[in-house]
Structures are given as C-alpha cells and as structure tokens.
Amino acid sequence: MNAKTIGIILNGSEIHLKSNSLKELIDSLNLSEARFAVEINREIVPKSQIDNYTLNDKDEVEIVIAVGGG
C-alpha cells in the first residue's frame, strides 16, 4: 500500500481517505452500533454488502440516521 488517498463527498462535504474500505469509514464515524443507512451515488448499499464494499474516488456517499421529527 502506498500513501495514495481517495477523495469522496460524504454527506455533502469533501473528505480524503487513506483507505477505500466503506467498513473502515463507518467504523471511523463511531456508527457501528447505531442504525444507519448508506447510499452511494444514489444507490442504496445494503447492510450485507458494507463489509466488502470498496469506495472509489469521487463517490458521493450519504449516511443517514433516524432523528426526532413529526
């Protein structure tokens, strides 16, 4: 592995990642125990596919949770 990074848009903000593993991104967000859902480039990524999902440069990632609402 070299030190190459990839750039993605996460929830509307550009970030750079050292790893292209979606699982590692989610772990870094402290979300592992919460209920959340992931959409990448407008496609839902089912929970079962998260562990093996590889992110690509310029991916647009949305990660959502449930919050209070009426």
Binding site: G12, S13, L29, F36, V64, I65, A66, V67, G68, G69
Partner: peptide, 9 residues
C-alpha cells in the same frame, strides 16, 4: 414518526 437525516461526521 421519525425523520431521516445525515449523520454528523
């Protein structure tokens, strides 16, 4: 009811 929102980074 709940709302669906982006998680805090």
């Amino acid at each position: 009811t709940v709302a669906i929102r982006r998680t805090n980074i």
